[in-house]
Computed example of a mutant assay.
Amino acid sequence: MSKLSRSLPDGAVRQKGGTVVSREEILKLRDVADLLKVGEKTVYSMAQAGELPAFKVRGQWRFSRKDIDAWIEQQKHTTQDLGEDGQK
């Protein structure tokens, strides 16, 4: 690892020309489907309905790994708050 790399903030990378940018991971729909162990159609419909944090790039859904991880944690807490029959 070079001396320059070690001085960068966590999750940042130095581009050609010396510009430092964030290296936040952006996922495609199929990546999120694999991560959540559900079908691509499920992820698509959840993104369309606003149930998953997502954004579009030229009509294609994209997902921030950080946002998906936070959403997963939120879902864990929401599920734990409910009883077996789905009621509080």
Score class of each variant (00 low, 15 high):
Met1Ile: 03
Met1Arg: 07
Ser2Asp: 11
Ser2Glu: 10
Lys3Glu: 15
Lys3Leu: 08
Lys3Cys: 01
Lys3Gly: 04
Lys3Pro: 00
Leu4Lys: 15
Leu4His: 08
Ser5Phe: 01
Ser5Glu: 15
Ser5Ile: 05
Arg6Gln: 12
Arg6His: 10
Ser7Leu: 12
Ser7Val: 10
Ser7Gln: 06
Leu8Lys: 01
Leu8Gly: 05
Asp10Pro: 10
Gly11Ile: 02
Gly11Glu: 14
Gly11Asp: 14
Gly11Pro: 03
Ala12Lys: 07
Ala12His: 15
Ala12Thr: 10
Val13Trp: 03
Val13Phe: 10
Val13Gly: 06
Arg14Tyr: 01
Arg14Lys: 12
Arg14Asp: 03
Arg14Gln: 12
Gln15Thr: 12
Gln15Tyr: 00
Lys16Met: 04
Lys16His: 09
Lys16Trp: 03
Gly17Tyr: 07
Gly17Lys: 05
Gly18Lys: 02
Gly18Ala: 01
Thr19Tyr: 02
Thr19Gly: 01
Thr19Glu: 11
Val21Gln: 06
Ser22Leu: 12
Ser22Glu: 13
Arg23Trp: 03
Glu24Asp: 15
Glu24Leu: 07
Glu25Lys: 14
Glu25Tyr: 02
Ile26Cys: 07
Ile26Met: 12
Ile26Lys: 08
Lys28Phe: 05
Lys28Ala: 14
Lys28Val: 06
Leu29Gly: 07
Leu29Glu: 13
Arg30Gly: 00
Arg30Thr: 15
Arg30Asn: 13
Arg30Val: 11
Asp31Ala: 13
Val32Glu: 04
Val32His: 08
Asp34Gly: 08
Leu35Gly: 05
Leu35Val: 01
Leu35Cys: 13
Leu36Tyr: 08
Leu36Ala: 11
Lys37Cys: 14
Lys37Asp: 15
Lys37Val: 12
Val38Met: 03
Gly39Ile: 06
Glu40Phe: 00
Lys41Ile: 07
Lys41Phe: 11
Lys41Asp: 15
Thr42Ser: 13
Val43Gly: 08
Val43Glu: 12
Tyr44Ile: 00
Tyr44Leu: 13
Ser45Gln: 14
Ser45Phe: 12
Ser45Glu: 15
Ser45Val: 02
Ala47Ile: 03
Ala47Lys: 03
Ala47Arg: 02
Gln48Glu: 13
Gln48Met: 05
Gln48Gly: 02
Ala49Gly: 02
Gly50Glu: 09
Gly50Gln: 06
Gly50Asp: 09
Glu51Cys: 03
Pro53His: 03
Ala54Met: 08
Ala54Asn: 12
Phe55Asn: 07
Val57Ile: 14
Val57His: 09
Val57Met: 11
Val57Phe: 10
Arg58Ala: 15
Arg58His: 09
Trp61Lys: 00
Trp61Thr: 10
Arg62Thr: 02
Ser64Gln: 06
Ser64Asp: 10
Arg65Gly: 04
Lys66Ser: 11
Asp67Lys: 14
Asp69Trp: 05
Ala70Asp: 08
Ala70Thr: 10
Trp71Glu: 09
Trp71Pro: 01
Ile72Asn: 05
Glu73Gln: 15
Gln74His: 01
Gln75Gly: 09
His77Thr: 06
Thr79Arg: 12
Thr79Pro: 00
Asp81Asn: 04
Leu82Met: 13
Leu82Cys: 02
Gly83Arg: 09
Gly83Val: 00
Glu84Thr: 05
Glu84Asn: 08
Asp85Phe: 09
Asp85Glu: 11
Gly86Ile: 00
Gln87Glu: 15
Gln87Phe: 13
Lys88Met: 04
